[in-house]
Design a binder for these strands. Structure first.
Length: 602
RNA sequence: GCCACCAUAGCUCAAUUGGCAGAGCACCUGUUUUGUAAACAGGUUGUUCCGGGUUCGAGUCCCGGUGGUGGCUCCA
């Protein structure tokens, strides 16, 4: 297997073999033990280790209170302070059923395990008086866990469905975290605090970027001037970059006749995420959940020659999808959002080159923004399944094109069979944010299905009609989600080229207002987003306020600056650069912006 | 949608066992004209999320709704 096909995550020690995994898994058992002391009638479900801790699901006789959590946490610490061995035992199914006769969830698990593995033996682990059905592994004894490195009060109790099925029993999930040392726990706490400070919903309000208004509706962000400026800057950048690469702009409406979606197959199969049809003079229209059908109709609007291809249609297309209200979250999960969409209609022989160019574009986008912590996932079809459309040769060719493209680009990726869309294989870019959550952003999908459903064709050199292949791609994924993540990525301190306001000129006295306006006009003339703060407040309070708004350059002007035609430059990082000639500053700032520099300098 | 928690001025928050709704910031007016993280004084600001109930009396207790937060499921 070529090196690039290795799953990058597999290069690390397997989590299951890790001491931390055993600590967390064992802590989950101790949690269950303490919970059963507090709630003897509780039924236990499952309690696995997760990325930064563990959880355990319980079916409780009554709601759990904050006091209960405190009690259980103290009890856990007390148990962990002792040296209680984790004893593993293999038991026959009947013995297991007898042991867990009062635990219906465990009995269900036993039946499923036996059905899946056909195993005659099950393993159980016992510490002190508590026994759990478990595959292990565990630490040898509770002495291996530092009670001061364990906490369950960091995250509030939450609801979770048994086996993730919303039709089944809702359980109470207690989250915990456990580390090797108290110092690691403290570091984890600090990271959570830092993540909370960066929350894009909080920064979005503080920086005046966007609001979500209850009268307008949940999940429908309103972009304020500063946020709209940021978004417009990103859009212009991507639009220009795309035009350089031969993309063609198109603009299509947010509604479409339901026939469009019946033809594409999105209706009724995507009905769960669509809004109800709108009656227009007896015809049904949908608020569009995706842009592809509109784009297909533009392709179909005239005869196409092989010479016309590839055709790359790009649009920042607003779409609307129904999301359950509990799932909405600021900009990262909205009901109305804008996809930086494009659909490339290509000949089969152009697929590889076009795919490579798309991936290069996405790499350029992420690289420019300094978002380097990402991985790529190739979703291929599950050969055992018949849910896919298109013949095997097409899939083979498309998958090979994606893999070849990744190899040629030296892109670290891993392959996940069964992750393809039903209409073709895809490549997703998954970015990690400061919370260490992974977000699927950019996506590239190869599609043989829509060209077929819309009966798209072109006349080839041999004068026969051929079917084009479609590439769907969106480097940002959606502008809303992407900007939400950017806000957290930069903690609101955007690089100057993205900053809604790049420079604020602060006059020391009212008599310097005219000069401040003159400096501002000079900066605006070279395309900068500059503002003169001539309000009737003193200089220090203006500095304080603009500093809080994370403005990259503060330009203080007083008598000395008026006389020497300079500005006294203070950088966002609080560095006082001193007086610079206006022209020198303007040239340096322009160069910083043109280079899309990640840092504020002069 | 479901489970839990929360909702007081534009913002951050206070208000003892149920007993006159407050502070800081912001905003307005006046004074001040300041060289790098909050000048001074005065003033305005409330359907305590909405609707009902209990009570002599509800921000506080109860019921219902709305909105938010953390999860579950899903996802750009």
């Amino acid at each position: 297997m070529p090196c690039s096909q290795r799953d990058v995550r597999m290069s690390d020690e397997r989590y299951e073999d890790n001491q931390l995994y055993k600590i967390r898994h064992s802590a989950a058992h101790v949690l269950a033990e303490a919970m059963l002391e507090r709630f003897p009638a509780a039924k236990t479900a499952i309690g696995p280790p997760i990325e930064d801790g563990f959880y355990y699901d319980f079916d409780l006789p009554q709601p759990i209170s904050a006091d209960d959590v405190k009690w259980v946490e103290r009890r856990m610490r007390k148990i962990l302070a002792g040296a209680h061995e984790f004893q593993c035992r293999e038991v026959a199914p009947d013995t297991a059923r007898e042991l867990f006769r009062d635990q219906p969830y465990k009995l269900e698990l036993i039946d499923d395990l036996l059905a899946d593995d056909n195993a005659a033996q099950l393993t159980i682990y016992t510490q002190r008086g508590f026994t759990d059905l478990c595959r292990g592994p565990h630490v040898a004894s509770t002495a291996d866990i530092d009670p001061k490195a364990v906490s369950i009060s960091l995250r509030p109790p939450a609801g979770a469905y048994w086996r993730g099925d919303e039709k089944r029993q809702q359980l109470t999930r207690i989250y915990g975290t456990a580390w090797r040392t108290p110092a690691e726990l403290a570091e984890h706490r600090a990271q959570l605090a830092e993540a909370a400070k960066r929350d894009h919903r909080v920064l979005g309000e503080k920086l005046g970027l966007f609001i979500i208004d209850s009268m307008v509706g949940k999940g429908l962000p309103l972009w304020l001037p500063a946020g709209a400026t940021l978004r417009d800057t990103l859009e212009r950048w991507l639009r220009d970059t795309q035009v350089e690469r031969g993309y063609l702009p198109i603009i299509t409406p947010h509604l479409g006749n339901i026939q469009l979606y019946k033809t594409s197959g999105h209706y009724p199969y995507y009905a769960d995420s669509q809004y109800s049809p709108i009656d227009v003079d007896g015809d049904e229209f949908l608020l569009r959940p995706m842009n592809c059908p509109h784009h297909c109709r533009i392709y179909a609007s005239q005869p196409r020659s092989y010479r016309d291809l590839p055709l790359r249609y790009a649009e920042f297309g607003a779409v609307y999808r129904y999301e359950q209200s509990g799932e909405l979250r600021g900009l990262t999960r909205a009901r109305g959002f804008t996809v930086d969409d494009a659909h490339l209609f290509v000949r089969p022989d152009q697929l590889l080159d076009e795919f490579i160019d798309v991936v290069r574009l996405i790499q350029e986008v992420f690289g420019t923004l300094g978002m380097t912590d990402f991985r790529a996932r190739v979703g291929t079809r599950d050969p055992a399944s018949d849910k896919y459309v298109g013949d095997a040769d097409m899939w083979e060719a498309a998958t090979a094109a994606i893999v070849r493209a990744c190899d040629q680009l030296n892109l670290a990726y891993h392959i996940e069979p069964g992750e393809a869309a039903f209409y073709g294989p895809k490549l997703d870019f998954i970015v990690r944010d400061v919370l260490k959550r992974e977000w699927q952003l950019g996506t590239v999908q190869v599609d043989y299905n829509l060209p077929h459903r819309f009966d798209l064709d072109y006349v080839d050199s041999d004068n026969t009609r051929k079917r084009p292949v479609m590439i769907h791609r969106a480097p940002f994924g959606s502008l809303e989600r992407f900007i939400g993540i950017l806000i957290e990525h930069f903690a609101g301190a955007f690089p100057p080229w993205l900053a809604p306001l790049q420079a604020v000129v602060i006059p020391i006295r009212e008599s310097h207002n005219d000069y401040a306006l003159e400096v501002t006009a000079r900066l605006k003339a070279c395309g900068m987003r500059a503002h003169a703060d001539t309000t009737d407040r003193n200089m220090r309070s203006k500095i304080r306020q603009r500093r809080a708004m994370l403005v990259p350059w503060l330009l203080i002007v007083g008598d000395r600056d008026v006389a020497a035609r300079t500005v006294s430059v203070r950088l966002r990082g609080d560095e006082d650069v001193g007086a610079l000639d206006i022209e020198d500053f303007a040239a340096a700032a322009q160069a910083n912006i043109a280079a899309k520099a990640m840092t504020v300098d002069f």
